[in-house]
Simulated scan of single mutants.
Amino acid sequence: MIYICSKCKSEKVNIEDKILCPKCHKKYIDELNGVKEPKQRHPFEGEKGMRFKNRFLAEFGECCERCGTTYRSILQVHHVKPFSKFPHLSYDYENLDVLCKKCNQHIGNSGLVDYERKIKTETFNL
Protein backbone atom coordinates (compact mmCIF):
# COMPACT_ATOMS: atom_id res chain seq x y z
CA MET A 1 0.00 0.00 0.00
CA ILE A 2 1.24 3.52 -0.81
CA TYR A 3 1.06 6.14 1.91
CA ILE A 4 1.32 9.87 1.30
CA CYS A 5 3.46 12.05 3.55
CA SER A 6 1.27 14.48 5.46
CA LYS A 7 3.93 17.20 5.28
CA CYS A 8 5.48 17.16 1.79
CA LYS A 9 2.83 14.99 0.05
CA SER A 10 5.39 12.54 -1.37
CA GLU A 11 4.42 8.91 -1.71
CA LYS A 12 7.50 7.51 0.02
CA VAL A 13 6.33 7.12 3.60
CA ASN A 14 7.73 5.10 6.48
CA ILE A 15 5.51 2.07 6.92
CA GLU A 16 6.04 2.23 10.68
CA ASP A 17 4.43 5.63 11.21
CA LYS A 18 2.35 5.96 8.00
CA ILE A 19 2.46 9.74 8.35
CA LEU A 20 5.83 11.16 7.27
CA CYS A 21 8.33 10.28 4.56
CA PRO A 22 11.89 9.50 5.78
CA LYS A 23 13.15 13.04 5.09
CA CYS A 24 10.24 14.74 6.90
CA HIS A 25 10.40 12.15 9.70
CA LYS A 26 14.10 12.96 10.29
CA LYS A 27 13.34 16.69 10.37
CA TYR A 28 10.52 16.04 12.84
CA ILE A 29 12.79 13.99 15.14
CA ASP A 30 15.55 16.61 14.88
CA GLU A 31 13.05 19.34 15.83
CA LEU A 32 11.95 17.31 18.85
CA ASN A 33 15.60 16.94 19.91
CA GLY A 34 16.34 20.65 19.36
CA VAL A 35 18.61 20.08 16.35
CA LYS A 36 18.44 22.94 13.87
CA GLU A 37 19.53 22.80 10.25
CA PRO A 38 22.34 25.25 9.50
CA LYS A 39 21.13 28.17 7.41
CA GLN A 40 22.50 28.02 3.89
CA ARG A 41 24.89 30.87 3.20
CA HIS A 42 24.14 33.05 0.17
CA PRO A 43 26.75 32.49 -2.56
CA PHE A 44 27.47 36.22 -2.86
CA GLU A 45 28.41 36.59 0.81
CA GLY A 46 32.08 36.69 1.67
CA GLU A 47 34.99 38.16 -0.25
CA LYS A 48 34.92 35.74 -3.21
CA GLY A 49 31.15 36.06 -3.66
CA MET A 50 31.16 39.86 -3.48
CA ARG A 51 34.02 40.05 -5.98
CA PHE A 52 32.12 37.76 -8.38
CA LYS A 53 28.86 39.71 -7.99
CA ASN A 54 30.54 43.09 -8.53
CA ARG A 55 32.39 41.90 -11.64
CA PHE A 56 29.24 40.28 -13.03
CA LEU A 57 27.23 43.48 -12.52
CA ALA A 58 30.05 45.59 -13.99
CA GLU A 59 30.05 43.46 -17.12
CA PHE A 60 26.34 42.70 -17.62
CA GLY A 61 24.52 45.15 -15.36
CA GLU A 62 23.58 47.98 -17.70
CA CYS A 63 19.85 47.46 -17.08
CA CYS A 64 17.23 45.11 -15.63
CA GLU A 65 16.61 42.28 -18.10
CA ARG A 66 12.91 42.18 -17.17
CA CYS A 67 11.70 45.80 -16.96
CA GLY A 68 14.63 47.69 -18.49
CA THR A 69 15.33 50.07 -15.59
CA THR A 70 18.82 51.54 -15.72
CA TYR A 71 19.15 52.57 -12.06
CA ARG A 72 22.40 50.74 -11.32
CA SER A 73 22.04 51.18 -7.57
CA ILE A 74 19.05 48.80 -7.46
CA LEU A 75 20.35 46.15 -9.89
CA GLN A 76 20.92 42.68 -8.47
CA VAL A 77 22.17 39.32 -9.68
CA HIS A 78 19.26 36.87 -9.92
CA HIS A 79 19.59 33.07 -9.86
CA VAL A 80 17.09 31.65 -12.38
CA LYS A 81 17.28 28.28 -10.63
CA PRO A 82 17.43 29.15 -6.92
CA PHE A 83 20.77 28.60 -5.21
CA SER A 84 19.00 26.96 -2.26
CA LYS A 85 17.96 24.07 -4.52
CA PHE A 86 20.79 24.20 -7.06
CA PRO A 87 23.94 25.33 -5.18
CA HIS A 88 26.19 23.94 -7.93
CA LEU A 89 24.77 26.61 -10.30
CA SER A 90 25.50 29.56 -7.98
CA TYR A 91 28.26 30.94 -10.22
CA ASP A 92 27.06 29.52 -13.56
CA TYR A 93 26.57 32.34 -16.06
CA GLU A 94 23.73 30.46 -17.76
CA ASN A 95 21.83 30.56 -14.46
CA LEU A 96 22.38 34.26 -13.70
CA ASP A 97 20.50 37.35 -14.81
CA VAL A 98 20.58 41.03 -13.90
CA LEU A 99 17.28 42.22 -12.42
CA CYS A 100 16.25 45.26 -10.43
CA LYS A 101 15.31 44.71 -6.81
CA LYS A 102 11.55 44.88 -7.54
CA CYS A 103 11.67 42.31 -10.37
CA ASN A 104 13.98 40.03 -8.38
CA GLN A 105 11.56 40.05 -5.43
CA HIS A 106 8.56 39.53 -7.74
CA ILE A 107 10.10 36.44 -9.32
CA GLY A 108 11.72 35.15 -6.13
CA ASN A 109 12.50 31.41 -6.15
CA SER A 110 9.73 30.55 -8.60
CA GLY A 111 12.03 29.84 -11.55
CA LEU A 112 9.69 31.99 -13.66
CA VAL A 113 11.28 33.55 -16.73
CA ASP A 114 8.78 36.00 -18.21
CA TYR A 115 11.40 38.12 -19.97
CA GLU A 116 13.96 37.70 -22.72
CA ARG A 117 17.23 36.54 -21.21
CA LYS A 118 20.55 37.90 -22.47
CA ILE A 119 23.23 35.41 -23.44
CA LYS A 120 26.22 35.68 -21.15
CA THR A 121 29.63 34.07 -21.52
CA GLU A 122 32.24 33.86 -18.81
CA THR A 123 35.04 36.33 -19.43
CA PHE A 124 36.85 36.37 -16.10
CA ASN A 125 37.95 34.04 -13.34
CA LEU A 126 38.02 34.67 -9.60
Results as ranks from 00 to 15, higher is better:
20 L>E: 11
10 S>Y: 03
124 F>H: 08
26 K>Y: 07
50 M>F: 05
28 Y>T: 00
116 E>P: 00
93 Y>G: 01
88 H>R: 13
96 L>T: 10
62 E>Q: 07
11 E>N: 14
32 L>M: 11
36 K>C: 00
120 K>P: 02
75 L>Y: 11
49 G>H: 12
110 S>N: 04
85 K>I: 06
90 S>I: 01
33 N>D: 11
58 A>V: 03
21 C>I: 07
106 H>P: 00
100 C>K: 02
92 D>T: 14
119 I>H: 09
114 D>G: 11
70 T>N: 06
93 Y>F: 15
55 R>P: 01
110 S>G: 03
111 G>M: 11
62 E>S: 12
100 C>H: 05
71 Y>W: 09
44 F>G: 06
111 G>F: 12
59 E>L: 15
1 M>F: 08
78 H>W: 15
23 K>W: 04
86 F>D: 04
79 H>K: 03
15 I>W: 01
54 N>G: 03
115 Y>K: 01
14 N>M: 11
119 I>K: 14
119 I>Q: 05
92 D>Q: 11
52 F>I: 07
70 T>G: 05
52 F>V: 06
50 M>H: 08
44 F>I: 06
1 M>N: 10
101 K>G: 06
53 K>M: 05
2 I>A: 04
67 C>I: 02
104 N>W: 07
63 C>R: 15
89 L>W: 14
108 G>R: 11
51 R>D: 03
76 Q>M: 01
109 N>G: 01
95 N>Q: 12
35 V>P: 00
63 C>W: 10
36 K>N: 02
123 T>E: 09
22 P>M: 09
9 K>G: 00
5 C>K: 10
108 G>A: 03
9 K>Y: 10
95 N>R: 14
118 K>S: 07
4 I>V: 15
38 P>L: 03
18 K>A: 07
46 G>D: 01
61 G>Y: 02
5 C>A: 09
79 H>Y: 11
102 K>A: 13
35 V>E: 02
110 S>E: 04
92 D>I: 03
108 G>F: 04
3 Y>F: 13
120 K>W: 06
14 N>A: 05
48 K>L: 08
66 R>Q: 07
121 T>D: 05
70 T>P: 04
18 K>I: 02
51 R>I: 06
8 C>E: 04
97 D>W: 09
30 D>V: 03
33 N>S: 12
47 E>V: 10
54 N>V: 01
44 F>A: 05
15 I>G: 00
76 Q>H: 04
36 K>A: 02
123 T>I: 09
116 E>N: 07
3 Y>R: 08
71 Y>Q: 13
116 E>D: 03
38 P>E: 03
67 C>R: 01
27 K>M: 05
81 K>Y: 04
8 C>I: 01
23 K>G: 02
114 D>C: 12
101 K>Q: 13
